[in-house]
Every structure is written in structure tokens, then in C-alpha cells.
Design a protein around this nucleic acid. Structure first.
Length: 270
DNA sequence: AAAGACACCTGTCCGC
DNA sequence: TGCGGACAGGTGTCTT
């Protein structure tokens, strides 16, 4: 479900209910997520949340004793609720605050994660080797150009590789490639610096626009307060197989790359 | 080292 | 209308 814009939308939505608030309890109804929820997570109980940060698609709830690391996987969402709201089937974890509000993790497919670290979360095994944030200055055309030389992997899979750049998931990879006029099938190593400049600009524009719109709701993504995202109205190719290209009218194609669907316009993207 | 396949899990939608 | 199968917004791990 969530790519970077959806995770960032979630972070902004829950932030007022979390930062500076005291955790009174953590309820784990289903510990079997992607990894088992560790017992040590309860070290957060009694602690005040000092900050709520995002790195890639991970959310980091920092306290003086350690940091909870949350990931929403494919189907996870976080909602702000009143503590007495009856949990439903896939509501696996609640972090309850002294305000009588809680953040509730719902995740039907259970590809998400809730972890705990006492150390610098950025040095955690899962975060340590991540590439730059796409909306930071560290992410630029020269980086993509340099990292891609001699690489035969398709450009679409290349920009979805979190070691190269984080946060570009399946929707926004297709959308960014459309905006920059690059075919998803092109080998990463064959793309010029000039074209990577276009691609980097497109990734930044697509992601920031989506954040402004509250993310993309395809099926079930909801912001923390229950509203859907609105960016799906601006999708040019994702999920539009067989429909007319908004620019040239050709029919949008769908192919499979690395067992993920890619959507593109074969006349606008070369 | 890079690239590809597969794993994890449940819900929904498509085609017959 | 019902059913099986394909597919879904992610990513770590194993094999080649």
C-alpha cells in the first residue's frame, strides 16, 4: 500500500497526537508480522515520544530509552483512535497515550513490522545501507548516472532499489518515468546524464505533489484521520492499461518487470 | 557484485 | 452466479 508519500502523510497526520505525548501501554494482539514484535518494545511504556521521524518508508518514534521502528509493508495503515474503539480483525498493535488516544496499526497482509532499538535507529541493520532520500539534495542526476554505469537492470527496477534511492515504489516509479519520457525497459546503464536530470526532477515533482494531495488511495489507503488520499486522480499511467494516454492518446501498456507491474506509454516513453 | 526468483500473508477482482 | 487463480502500494534472503 504505502509508498513514501503515504508514509509521510501518515507521519504528518499522527504527529500531533504522538510527539511530546507519554506512552502508557502497548497492546500487541498479533505479534507475527514480518518479524515477530519484540518483547523489548514495551520499554517504550512510560516514555515520552521525543520525535516522530521518517527514513525511507520507516517511521521512527524516538524516546530517551530507544526507538520504535514501524514499517507499513504492503497493506499497513496507522490510525489515530480513541482508546475505547473496539479493534477489528487486522488491528495488530496499539500504542496508547496518556491522552486516551492511541495509534492503531492495521495490516491485513502482515508484511509490516514493529521493531525496537536502543541504539541510533539510522544504524539499524535495516536502515544502515539505504540510499538518499529522494526529496533531499543528496539525490541528484549525477548519483543515478554514476551508480548505473555498466548496469543492465532496467531503469524502473533501478530506481525502485532502495540502495540507490529510497521511497520510489511501484506507482511513482511508473509515473516518474512517464513524466520524464523514459521507457521503463531501458537499461539503467544506457541512460545519459541529461536524461537522468529529467528523471530526478520528475521523481521529486511526483513525490512532492502526491504528499501535497495526501497520497494515493487505490484501494484502502487512508490518512491517519480517515480521509483518503487524492493523488490517484493525477495518475497518468499506473493502473491505466488499455486506456488512452493523456498526452498522445495511444493506449497505455502494462508489462511485468521483476514480478511487478509497470505501466507506460510506448509512444511518449523511449 | 549484480540480477533474478522466491518468500511472507490476506483480500479482492477477473475471466471462464 | 460461482469458482479458481491472478494480482496487489514492499523488501529481505537465497541462488545463479
Amino acid at each position: 500500500m504505502p509508498e513514501l508519500p503515504e508514509v509521510e502523510t501518515t507521519r504528518r497526520g499522527i504527529s500531533p497526537y504522538v510527539v511530546g505525548k507519554k506512552v502508557v501501554s502497548i497492546i500487541v494482539r498479533q505479534p507475527k508480522l514480518r518479524w515477530s514484535v519484540p518483547e523489548s518494545l514495551h520499554e517504550l511504556e512510560g516514555e515520552k515520544i521525543l520525535s516522530l521521524k521518517r527514513r525511507a518508508k520507516y517511521l521512527l518514534l524516538e524516546s530517551s530509552r530507544g526507538t520504535a521502528i514501524l514499517h507499513l509493508g504492503m497493506s499497513g495503515s496507522l490510525r489515530v483512535i480513541n482508546v475505547d474503539l473496539v479493534p477489528e480483525k487486522h488491528d495488530h498493535v496499539d500504542i496508547v497515550f496518556s491522552t486516551n488516544k492511541a495509534i492503531r496499526l492495521r495490516d491485513p497482509r502482515r508484511f509490516g513490522a514493529v521493531l525496537w532499538t536502543r541504539d541510533d535507529p539510522l544504524q539499524h541493520k535495516l536502515l544502515r545501507h539505504l540510499g538518499p532520500e529522494p526529496l533531499s539534495e543528496k539525490f541528484d542526476a549525477l548519483l543515478l548516472y554514476t551508480m548505473s554505469r555498466k548496469r543492465k537492470v532496467s531503469v524502473k527496477q533501478f530506481i525502485m532499489n532502495a540502495q540507490i534511492v529510497v521511497g520510489v515504489g511501484n506507482i511513482y516509479a511508473s509515473e516518474s518515468l512517464f513524466m520524464s519520457g523514459i521507457s521503463p525497459k531501458t537499461a539503467a546503464g544506457q541512460i545519459s546524464l541529461k536524461r537522468y536530470e529529467k528523471l530526478v526532477e520528475a521523481i521529486k515533482v511526483v513525490l512532492s505533489r502526491s504528499i501535497e494531495q495526501g497520497g494515493t488511495t487505490l484501494r484502502d489507503f487512508m490518512q491517519a484521520e480517515g480521509k483518503p488520499g487524492y493523488f490517484q486522480q493525477q495518475l497518468n499511467v499506473y493502473g491505466r492499461r488499455g486506456e488512452e494516454c493523456n498526452v498522445c492518446g495511444s493506449l497505455i501498456k502494462q508489462i511485468s518487470q521483476g514480478q511487478r507491474s509497470s505501466f507506460y506509454c510506448s509512444s511518449c516513453q523511449k
